[in-house]
Write a protein that binds this DNA or RNA. Structure first.
Lengths: 349, 349
DNA sequence: GTGAAAGCGCTAACAT
DNA sequence: ATGTTAGCGCTTTCAC
């Protein structure tokens, strides 16, 4: 039923090799022949079978992407970038969701390996040893995780945190709480250290958690943060930050008048939250595209090629954030309403 | 470099066919042989090349999914369902994003066709004729769109709208605005008609739009809705509804005291918006899984099999919705503050 | 410049 | 129950 190269050859009155060449190596056939073949192919609606081609060339023309969880709004943006860049490079993409499971992720790479030329791992959940074992199975590019001499696309978390601290410092904040995500997560370590190092003279960072990196985690974390003597809260990610905002609203704490809240990741819709959130935004779409670039160059370009692409983070201070507070002229020292709800002694402060 | 079936055969001291059988047809080889072969295969880390297998069997073991736009939070939930169900059935999945472009979508199906056993089209953007032409290329299952005798997974929009109207009627609402999405969208027609038909005696529906099915579209639509004499707004989707809520908040219109807002789709995070949104939720995860079921049965099961799976919608009335208003005892007739901002005559009311 | 033939990794007759 | 052979659709020597 499907049109094969044989069909085209027969219809065009040439051999299969000529058809193959006409389509793949234009300069190896006479122009007239090429035209005739191409015309015939189009007329019959011929589409080469890439699987068969891959069998002999060793290249499938496919890419694989594995994400920890599609319901995490963080990943679709990366996928979108991967998609568009892959299409541009004439690659099709396999997608898999490993359900936050490192072992499953490793298994998926194995399962994909034969059908793809390389795999992009987003925020890999593999343990270092699993990852080590997986490297070598196929070409690999990591997003949001750095390892050995493997090609990686990472975000300049340190830079982002520096921007965040500068921003908060300019608003007069001196004590910041960091709400941790999953303790052993590579991203959490990155962000935690980034923030700690960005803290300047006169600014202290209080690390709380770990918490679940979810809206609910934020709800929970907010109460603990309120118990601390801070005027700013930096959450592991935007999802948590939204939870924090929600809880703060319930407890009648004004944002940013009483407390500034910062998120990380810039998930879609974060800007729709009220009151608005300040976010250290990662460029997920660009990350996806960059990963495809690295992968493609690794696949084709011998052994050279870039190994590490670092994307800068952007501090997004949403419009109305500035409005309600009088932050600039009147730095938020309004810790009273925050602590008011806790009747514990001021110990530790 | 990769381990082939030849390698296993050699290592196990049997022929390739025996290896093939030992792995695929356990009952066709002696148990001892089978064990030996399987053990050898595992030891060498052999993984069959599915592309090569597909070349001869005609089955690839792959599924394709095409979505209009990955950045639309509506689709990842479907993808997640597809993923998990596909994995269970031992299928790998190709993903493509057609950027809301029907022609591109059709082209993607063609491009995938040879590498997959079937394709799932989510909210297809193809024109009827494009769709007609695409059918037959490969096995197809549609989600959120109904056509000919093609297998489809659809939502019981009519039922959902009935629930919505019942809900609003119980709260005392009599005049409802429907904010349309893209005019020619199949979903928009569905929802519009569903709502119109659900409207009972004494309840009128005011159709506005079309609007962009986005947060921004909602911002815009809200102002137009406020100019109408309605107490409830049903938006084409949750994204628009969030935009409406945001605009209403800016204009100091209280929800749901002054106006009730309903969305459709139940995108993740919709519940995090303040004030809370009432949503007619579609079961996207289940839809994805159902689509895989239909596709698999269509691929394997000759020509029989279910053709149409209809999933019920759920009305999600979020907890705090009830709190602020005194809706039950005091139906919202507070149209004054809504209209107050427009100084046009009451004409048309 | 073009055709004939070999073979990629695998399965499915067909032998034994 | 197992081995041998042909061939899936394609690219790529190798002849001509």
């Amino acid at each position: 039923m499907p049109v094969t190269i044989q069909d085209v050859a027969r219809a065009a009155g040439v051999s299969v090799s000529t058809v193959s060449r006409a389509l793949a190596a234009p300069e190896m056939v006479r122009e007239a022949t090429r035209l005739h073949v191409v015309e015939t192919a189009n007329r019959l609606g011929y589409r080469p079978n890439r699987a068969a081609r891959g069998l002999i060339t060793g290249k499938t023309g496919n890419l694989g992407v594995i994400v920890p969880d599609l319901s995490n709004p963080f990943f679709p943006a990366i996928l979108k970038g991967v998609q568009s860049q892959a299409r541009g490079a004439d690659y099709a993409v396999f997608l898999a969701d490993c359900d936050e499971n490192g072992a499953e992720e490793a298994a998926l790479v194995q399962a994909m390996a034969k059908q793809v030329d390389g795999v992009i791992l987003c925020s890999s959940r593999m343990s270092p040893s699993q990852l080590e074992r997986t490297i070598g199975t196929t070409s690999l590019v990591l997003i949001n995780r750095s390892v050995r001499d493997q090609p990686v696309v990472i975000m300049d978390v340190a830079g982002g945190m520096r921007q965040a601290v500068d921003h908060l410092a300019a608003l007069g904040h001196r004590r910041i709480a960091y709400l941790q995500g999953p303790r052993n997560s590579w991203s959490n370590q990155q962000r935690r250290r980034g923030l700690r190092r960005a803290a300047r003279r006169g600014i202290t960072v209080n690390e709380l958690g770990p918490f679940a990196p979810t809206f609910e985690g934020g709800l929970h974390a907010a109460d603990l943060a309120l118990a601390e003597d801070v005027t700013a809260i930096v959450a592991y990610n935007d999802l948590m930050a939204l939870g924090v905002l929600s809880r703060l609203a319930d407890r009648d704490v004004k944002v940013p008048a009483d407390v500034s809240v910062l998120g990380f990741d810039d998930i879609p819709m974060a800007g729709m939250a009220t009151p608005p959130l300040t976010t250290v935004a990662m460029q997920n779409g660009r990350a996806g595209r960059a990963a495809v670039d690295l992968l493609v160059s690794q696949i084709s370009g011998a052994d050279a090629g870039e190994l590490r692409r670092e994307l800068e983070c952007q501090l997004i201070v949403r419009a109305s954030t500035a409005t309600p507070g009088t932050a600039r002229s009147d730095p938020p020292h309004v810790t009273a309403p925050v602590r008011r709800r806790r009747d514990e002694p001021v110990a530790g402060a």
